Computed example of a mutant assay.
Amino acid sequence: MERTRNSWKCPIFGDLNDLKDNVLPTYGDVMRFYEWTRHRLKYERERNKEPTYKEIEAIVVARLIEIWAKSSIPTVEPKRMKVMLQTYHLKCKNLLKSNPRIPKNTLEGFRLGSKALFDIAACKCQEFLKCACPKNKKIPARERGFITDQRTARQMVIGALDVVTTTKITKTLKRKSIRENSKSKRLKKPKHVRKS
Rank of each mutant, 00 (worst) to 15 (best):
Y34G: 03
K49G: 06
G28N: 02
E57N: 03
E55V: 00
D21F: 13
C123F: 12
D18N: 00
D162T: 08
E50H: 09
M81H: 05
R45T: 02
L95G: 06
L24V: 08
D149Y: 08
D29K: 03
F118M: 03
P103F: 09
D162V: 05
I65H: 10
E57V: 02
H39K: 01
P103M: 01
N17W: 07
M84G: 04
K138V: 09
G109F: 07
L96V: 02
K138D: 05
P25S: 06
G159W: 10
E55M: 01
K42V: 08
Q126E: 14
Y88H: 15
E77C: 12
K49L: 12
P78K: 00
D162W: 05
K82R: 15
A58P: 12
E57R: 03
Y53N: 09
V83G: 12
V30M: 06
W36R: 01
R45K: 11
H39C: 12
K70P: 13
Y53T: 06
V164H: 07
I73E: 03
R101A: 15
K124P: 01
G28Y: 10
K137R: 11
R40W: 12
Y34H: 14
E66I: 07
N94V: 01
V83I: 13
I120G: 11
L117D: 04
P103C: 03
F33P: 04
F128W: 10
M81E: 14
E55R: 00
K54H: 10
F118A: 04
L24F: 08
Y53A: 11
G113K: 10
L95Y: 07
G28L: 08
I158C: 11
G109R: 10
V163Q: 13
S71N: 02
I56M: 03
E143I: 04
D21P: 12
R151D: 03
C133A: 13
K42I: 10
K124R: 02
E66D: 13
D21Y: 12
R47M: 09
A62W: 06
Q86E: 04
T152K: 02
K137F: 09
R63F: 01
K49N: 08
M84V: 03
E127R: 01
T106P: 08
I59W: 07
R144K: 06
K130W: 11
R63M: 02
R40A: 11
V60N: 04
V60W: 07
T106I: 15
N94M: 05
T26C: 11
I147E: 06
I147M: 10
K20L: 15
Y53S: 09
K124N: 05
M84H: 04
I67N: 02
N48C: 09
G159R: 06
D18F: 05
T75L: 12
P74K: 15
Q150K: 01
E108P: 05
T37K: 04
